[in-house]
Write a protein that binds this DNA or RNA. Structure first.
Length: 378
DNA sequence: CACTGTCATCAAAGATCAGT
DNA sequence: ACTGATCTTTGATGACAGTG
């Protein structure tokens, strides 16, 4: 490798096609370093005769692991947090993919009306349908989430599973038919389509989800991550809201492991340092959308409480985020009150962020300014 | 201008890989 | 063997360019 010119998500070629461009210049023989040029402004880059942003990087960074090209200052910050932290996110949290129905248009529905026992909606052909409430679960699909907003479900999901020994198992067909005749009738209408999905036992278990993944992970407090996203953004959920996801999104779930506080995770995943760290190694899509999938966030360095001082700080951070979550549930009546609540949340987050920066041993004000720069990916 | 084939896009489906 | 994660392919959709 002699030189690498990295255009990120900038579109070098005109036209409709989205291309992620990079120029690689190679040479005969080995070299200890190579020239790295991250193009931040395409027009400026084209016009300047001497490239001002180039840096020399050691060839070692081009290993089997995903390639990461931090600036010198970013490298210092990363070294600092890696030095401070013994743990990784995956040690204190479980990161899981969402459900996969393999037939979202059938299993997800938009309630138009409801009474005590039933929900009314239109099927994919626009036909009027009615289904038992009890077989439905609150869900989100195609909806943004924000740490400053209490999640409001925007869909219902048909959930043909029942609890057995604390686990969700598929209802028997007979049981489904008996207990939820309307739901059964609705699904039966799509039997052929459902059976065509490639899944184990499609013949008999035609009314199940396409994958059995994550079925038992929605019954606790958790965080929901939107994916891909412009910015790291996790939201607290205590309503057992269901979502789909995996691969390229749209959602990932995070729950605490061991004795970790879920609100501490919330603080971590909304902190600028997490955003910075993930963006350095994640893949970026047109428009500056980054993937926050499991593989890109699992190794994020975290400090596992070591001193009494850490404990106290973490407690404070948890307290601040607890207040934010509380405020999210307040329904304000006037724009003034709204603005006041937002101001309070912003302040609480700022304080929590600053405390967390302290734990990482980085100077918070500087971290925010370094964060303004854009930088590369794999 | 209508028609048609091509291409890009997005995200879901499908397949495969990996861990327990 | 089974569950869950991730990689690859596909399918639906819409924009667009070429053609008669």
């Amino acid at each position: 490798m002699k030189q690498l010119i990295h255009f990120g998500a900038d579109q070098v070629f005109e036209g409709q096609a989205t291309t992620y461009t990079c120029i690689v210049i190679t040479q005969n023989g080995k070299s200890d370093t190579f020239i790295f040029d991250k193009v931040r402004d395409l027009t400026r880059w084209k016009n300047e005769s001497t490239k001002t942003e180039i840096i020399n990087l050691p060839t070692e960074v081009l290993s089997e692991a995903p390639w990461v090209f931090p600036s010198k200052r970013e490298q210092e910050i990363i070294s600092q947090i890696e030095k401070t932290c013994r743990g990784k996110l995956i040690d204190i949290a479980e990161i899981f993919v969402g459900l996969q129905t393999s037939a979202d248009s059938i299993f997800f529905l938009n309630p138009e009306k409801e009474d005590d026992k039933h929900v009314y909606f239109s099927d994919t052909e626009g036909g009027a349908q009615m289904i038992e409430k009890e077989v439905l679960r609150a869900a989100i699909l195609d909806k943004a989430v924000s740490p400053f907003q209490y999640i409001i479900q925007n869909k219902k999901l048909i959930f043909p599973y029942e609890q057995k020994n604390g686990r969700n198992v598929l209802m028997s067909e007979e049981n489904l038919k008996m207990r939820y005749p309307h739901a059964y009738k609705y699904l039966l209408q799509y039997k052929q389509k459902l059976q065509a999905r490639k899944m184990p036992n499609a013949e008999e278990r035609w009314y199940q989800f396409g994958r059995s993944q994550s079925l038992n992970k929605f019954n606790t407090q958790k965080l929901i991550i939107k994916n891909p996203a412009l910015q790291a953004c996790a939201t607290f959920d205590d309503q057992d809201i269901l979502f789909t996801g995996g691969g390229n999104g749209p959602y990932y779930g995070v729950r605490p492991k061991n004795n970790t506080e879920v609100l501490y995770l919330l603080a971590l995943l909304n902190h600028p340092i997490f955003d910075k760290w993930v963006k350095l190694r994640s893949s970026v899509f047109r428009g500056g959308y980054y993937s926050f999938g499991r593989q890109f966030i699992a190794d994020f360095p975290v400090k596992i409480s070591e001193t009494e001082n850490d404990d106290t700080t973490i407690k404070k951070i948890v307290e601040y985020w607890g207040k934010i979550v509380q405020l999210n549930k307040v329904t304000s009546t006037t724009p003034n009150q709204n603005a006041e609540i937002l101001r309070q949340k912003t302040f609480l987050k700022f304080e929590a962020d600053r405390l967390l920066s302290g734990i990482y041993g980085v100077y918070h004000e500087e971290l925010i300014s370094v964060n303004d720069e854009e930088n590369g990916d794999e």
